[in-house]
Simulated scan of single mutants.
Amino acid sequence: MPLLHHEPTGTVRTLEDLLGIATAMERDAVRRYTLLAGLMERRGEYDTAATFRRLVAEEEGHVEAVDGWARTLGLRASDGPEAEALLPPEIAASWRALSERTRLTPHQALSLAVLNEQRAFAFYSYIAAASTDDAIRLRAEELAHEELRHAALLRHDRRAAYHRERRDAKEGPARAETPAELERLVTTLFSAGAAEHAALAAALHALGDASSAALVARIAEDERRFAEPRPGGPAQHPTASDCLRAAFRVSERLAEAFGDVAEHTTDEEVLIRAQHLQELVIGHLTELAERIETLA
């Protein structure tokens, strides 16, 4: 399962297990999409907010549908800690990058939402393939189909957000059509990013902000894993807040570049790797945004 880093833990032995997982998954999605809709509305991104509001309504309908399935079968779907423990940890981890304190663009928010819907599809598909119970398999396949439909809806809106954000851009989008092309692009992008972040970390250290310097230095170290050595010039920024905002802009540029690649490639291997790299960088954006807010 390329969209999940680990096989699902635990075993779905009964329909109650499956219905409990489905209820926990749908209620979590309602909570996350509601947060995103409110965030986009406050930014004036009403088209993107409408997409998330539409998904909230659909997910709420799914919660009711799961309850209806349970009543029809004379079962009780539990969505307690036992069910939540079986959910893919990758979904919860990447949702954390979509907190209200991030500076994600609509395109980036929609990109991660697409990825999580695809992960939910992979999760239910695994359950269906692993089950020897026909009733569990059929229900899991139905749930997988719904997640795939949501991903398709989000991809459509993601493309619209992409074109809105790029309408006035002077440079063309980053592209890679083969794994080899992507690896060359990764080296180029992360080489530049690591050099700039290392210089900013040094500037923060000189300003006496050791904790911010450590954060930016760690991000530079993450990027060096993909980069060729490149010297970074001195970063000229008068305050720690200025340095952190500059570091944020560097990571934002990287996230947008990997989003570009994922948006345009027709190669599945390139798509999945670009999405994973974008998720790594979005994690950096989240940490930087939180640090910036502590200095505001």
Score class of each variant (00 low, 15 high):
Met1Phe: 15
Pro2Trp: 13
Leu3Asn: 15
Thr11Phe: 14
Thr14His: 08
Leu18Val: 10
Gly20Leu: 01
Met25Thr: 11
Asp28Arg: 13
Tyr33Arg: 07
Gly44Ile: 02
Tyr46Phe: 12
Asp47Thr: 12
Ala57Pro: 08
Glu58Ser: 13
Val63Trp: 11
Ala65Trp: 13
Ala65Met: 10
Asp67Lys: 12
Gly68Pro: 05
Arg76Asn: 09
Ala77Arg: 08
Ala77Glu: 05
Ser78Thr: 13
Pro81Ile: 10
Glu84Leu: 13
Glu84Pro: 08
Leu87Gln: 03
Glu90Pro: 10
Ile91Gln: 02
Ile91Ser: 00
Ala93Pro: 01
Ser94Tyr: 05
Arg96Asp: 03
Arg96Trp: 08
Glu100Ile: 06
Arg101Ser: 09
Arg101His: 07
Pro106Glu: 00
Pro106Leu: 00
His107Val: 11
Ala109Cys: 06
Leu112Asp: 00
Leu115Ala: 09
Asn116His: 04
Gln118Pro: 09
Ala122Cys: 08
Ala122His: 11
Ser125Pro: 11
Ile127Lys: 01
Ser131Met: 06
Thr132Gly: 02
Ala140Glu: 00
Ala140His: 00
Glu147Phe: 07
Leu154His: 01
Ala160Arg: 15
Ala161Thr: 03
Tyr162Ile: 10
His163Ile: 08
Glu165Gln: 08
Arg166Pro: 02
Arg167Cys: 05
Gly172Trp: 14
Pro173Ala: 04
Thr178Cys: 11
Leu182Asn: 04
Val186Ala: 12
Thr188Arg: 15
Ala201Leu: 04
Ala201Ile: 02
Ala202Phe: 13
Ala203Cys: 12
Ala210Cys: 10
Arg218Gln: 07
Pro231Asn: 15
His237Tyr: 11
Phe248Tyr: 03
Val250Phe: 01
Leu254His: 02
Ala255Glu: 01
Phe258Glu: 00
Gly259Pro: 03
His264Lys: 13
Thr265Val: 07
Thr265Trp: 03
Thr266Cys: 11
Thr266Ser: 10
Glu269Gln: 14
Leu271Asp: 14
Ile272Trp: 14
Ala274Lys: 01
Leu277Gly: 06
Leu277Arg: 10
Ile282Asp: 04
Ile282Val: 14
Ala289Asn: 08
Arg291Pro: 02
Glu293Leu: 15
Ala296Asn: 14
